[in-house]
Design a protein around this nucleic acid. Structure first.
Lengths: 334, 334
DNA sequence: TTGAAAGCGCTAACAC
DNA sequence: GTGTTAGCGCTTTCAA
C-alpha cells in the first residue's frame, strides 16, 4: 500500500480511502490511485486491516465437525458456506477424526486466528472449556448436538420424537422384536434417539431384550458385523432401527449379504444416497443437513452482531420417508 | 500480551519468548509469565504474530472446489485437512456452486487473507489470471483437473487411460453398442475421459453413433432422464459408460426403474457409496480422492517451502473394480 | 478534501 | 537472560 501511495503521489491514507471506497476523495485522485494499484498488482491485506479495524473482526468463522467426508456433515458445511460467502466471510473447516480430544486443541488453533465465531458439532463430552471464551465475546453456535456445560444457539432435529415416530411405525406394522443399533453413546444425539426408541417400545408395552440394543457403533464395517451376528442369533429381531447413516449402510450390507432384505424391516436415521434405489428402498428419517448448516450460520452471524441476544434452540423437523424397507411386516407367528 | 507482561512484571519480549517456547528464559520467569497468562485467559493472536513474522506466513491455506457436498470433493478436503493439521495449518474451504465465474472472485477473497497457498479444482475455463500471483510467490496446486494458461503442481488420475481400459473391458465382454455419458465438457477431466472412450472404440474399430454420446450432463436427475430416453430409443446401447459419480448414480436409477439393470452393462467413473451393495454391483473406475487430497497438500507445502522447485504432475492410478454391472454380456445378436 | 501521527498485537534485530 | 526499539500493513484520530 505504501508503494501504491508513492507511485500515485498521494498519502497512505488516501490509498486506504480509495481501497475501502470511503467517500470524500476527488475523482481525480481515485483514478490515480486505482491506476497505481493495478500497475503494482496491489491487493489489500485483510489480515493487517482487521488488526486495526474496529471490533477486531477477521471476517472468518470456523466450522468444527466430526468428519467432513461424512455426507451429512459435508452438507452442513455446504449450508454454512452458502450464507458465509454472501457476507464475505471465509470458513475454516476442520474435522476431528476419531480423536475426541482433538476438539479442544483444534478450537484453540482457530481462536488463535481470531475467528469471529465458531460452529461446532460437539464430540467431546463437555464444552465447559468454552465458557470463558463466550464470556469474552466468542460467538458460538452448535449443530446436530446440544453442547454440555455451556449455553449457546443450537440447531438440531427432533431426534427423540422422530425416532419414536419411526419405531412406532414399525410397531404399527406388527413388529415386536425391534433392534436398536446406535452410534457413540456419549453423544446427546445418540442418547436422544435411544430414548425415542425406548419411548415407543414402552408406550406399546413391548419388551426390549438386552441383546436387541447395541450402542457405540462407529463404522460401517462394525455395523455390518453386528447386524450379521444379530440376525444369526437364536432369537433374531424382525425389524431393525439403525440410528445413524453409517450404521444404516452397514445394516443394508448385512441384510443383503444374508439375503433377508425383503423379510427383515429396517428404518434408518439420516437419509443416504441411493437409499431409494435399493430394492426394497430403505425407509429413513431424513434430516435436511444443508438447511441445518444455513440456520446455524445465520444464528452465528446474528450473535456476532449482537452478543447479548438470548440463545435459542431451533428444532428442524425431520421426515419419515417410506420406501419399502420400513413397511415389511413381520413373519407370521407360528 | 501487554497485560500479561505487566502482570508478570516482565517485558513484552519475555512474554513473547515464553509463549513461543524460545529457549533462554529463566524458569522462574517462565513460571511467572505462564501464571499471568492463565490468569488473564491470554491467547496469542496468530494473525498479529504472522504479520511480523518472517516470510509473512499466515499458516492458512485455501481449498477451492466445485462442491464440498459431492463425496468425491469432500474426500479431497479430508485428505488436505489431514496433512494440514499436522503442520498447524488451517484450511479455508470454499465451494463454487454452479457459478463458474465465482472462481476468480472467491480466490481473490482468499488471497486478501494472505493464505500461504491455494489448492484448486479448476472449473473456470482458464486460470491465466493466476499467473501474476504465482510470479509474486503464491503457492498453487491443482487437483482433479489440470489448469489452463498457468503452470503448477497437478494431482490427477489417469482419466484417459483408465477410461480407455474400462471401455476396452466392455468391448472385451462383446459389446459394440456402448454409450458415453459425460460431465461438463469444458473440463479437462471430462475431455480426457471422452478421449479415452474414443481411443478404445477406435482401437477396436467400433463405430460410435452420434446419439450414443451425451456430454455436459450436470446432475443426477439430468443423467437419469438422458439414460432413460437413450434406452427407450430405437437403437439402444447394450452398455453404458458413465463418466462421473453423479451421472453414474443417475444411470443406476434409470436402469433400475426400467428394470434393465441385469441386461444392460454399466461402468462408472468414480466409486460411490453402496455401489457394491446394489444388485448387480456397479463396476467402477475408482479413484482415491482422499489420497489425492493428501498428495496435493504435500505438493503445496513443498512449494511453499521452496517456490523455485520444478512443477510436477502426479498421476494417481485408479482401479477398475469389477462388481457385476460391467461384466454383463450383450444380448445375443439375432 | 487530504495528510501526519499513533497504534492494532506481535516479533526481529540488536542492545545490555 | 532480559529489555529496547523499530516496524509488519493497515486504520483511526485529528489536524490542516
Amino acid at each position: 500500500m505504501r508503494e501504491v501511495a508513492a507511485l500515485a503521489g498521494v498519502s497512505l491514507k488516501t490509498v486506504s480511502r480509495v481501497v475501502n471506497r470511503e467517500p470524500g476523495v476527488s475523482s481525480e485522485l481515485v483514478r490515480k490511485v486505482e491506476r497505481a494499484a493495478t500497475q503494482l498488482d496491489f491487493r489489500p491485506n485483510l489480515t493487517a486491516a482487521n488488526l486495526r479495524r474496529a471490533g477486531q473482526r477477521t471476517a472468518t468463522i470456523g466450522l468444527v465437525l466430526e468428519d467432513v467426508s461424512n455426507p451429512f456433515f459435508a452438507a452442513i458445511l455446504r449450508g454454512v458456506e452458502e450464507v458465509a460467502v454472501q457476507r464475505g466471510v471465509a470458513v475454516f473447516a476442520a474435522s476431528l477424526d476419531e480423536d475426541q480430544n482433538q476438539e479442544q486443541q483444534i478450537i484453540e488453533e482457530l481462536l488463535s486466528r481470531r475467528v469471529d465465531g465458531l460452529i461446532l458439532a460437539p464430540t467431546a463430552l463437555e464444552q465447559g472449556y468454552l465458557a470463558n471464551e463466550m464470556r469474552s465475546g466468542l460467538a458460538l453456535a452448535f449443530v446436530d448436538r446440544a453442547p454440555r456445560g455451556v449455553d449457546g444457539d443450537v440447531i438440531v432435529t427432533d431426534n427423540r420424537g422422530a425416532t419414536e415416530n419411526a419405531v412406532r411405525h414399525l410397531i404399527g406394522m406388527g413388529h415386536h422384536r425391534i433392534a436398536f443399533i446406535g452410534g457413540v453413546a456419549a453423544l446427546p444425539t445418540a442418547e436422544d434417539r435411544y430414548d425415542g426408541y425406548l419411548d415407543a417400545m414402552m408406550a406399546a408395552q413391548v419388551k426390549v431384550p438386552a441383546d436387541y440394543v447395541v450402542r457405540d457403533v462407529r463404522t460401517v464395517q462394525q455395523a455390518e458385523r453386528i447386524v450379521t451376528a444379530l440376525m444369526q442369533s437364536a432369537n433374531p429381531p424382525t425389524a431393525i432401527f439403525t440410528a445413524q447413516n453409517l450404521i444404516s449402510m452397514g445394516a443394508v450390507r448385512a441384510l443383503r449379504s444374508l439375503g433377508v432384505e425383503r423379510s427383515v424391516a429396517q428404518i434408518g436415521y439420516d437419509d443416504f444416497e441411493l437409499a431409494d434405489v435399493l430394492n426394497p428402498g430403505v425407509t429413513v428419517v431424513a434430516q435436511d443437513p444443508r438447511r441445518i448448516g444455513r440456520l446455524a450460520a445465520e444464528a452465528l452471524f446474528a450473535r456476532i452482531a449482537d452478543a447479548g441476544r438470548a440463545t435459542a434452540t431451533t428444532v428442524v423437523p425431520s421426515e419419515l420417508i417410506k420406501r419399502g424397507s420400513g413397511e415389511i411386516p413381520p413373519p407370521r407367528e407360528r
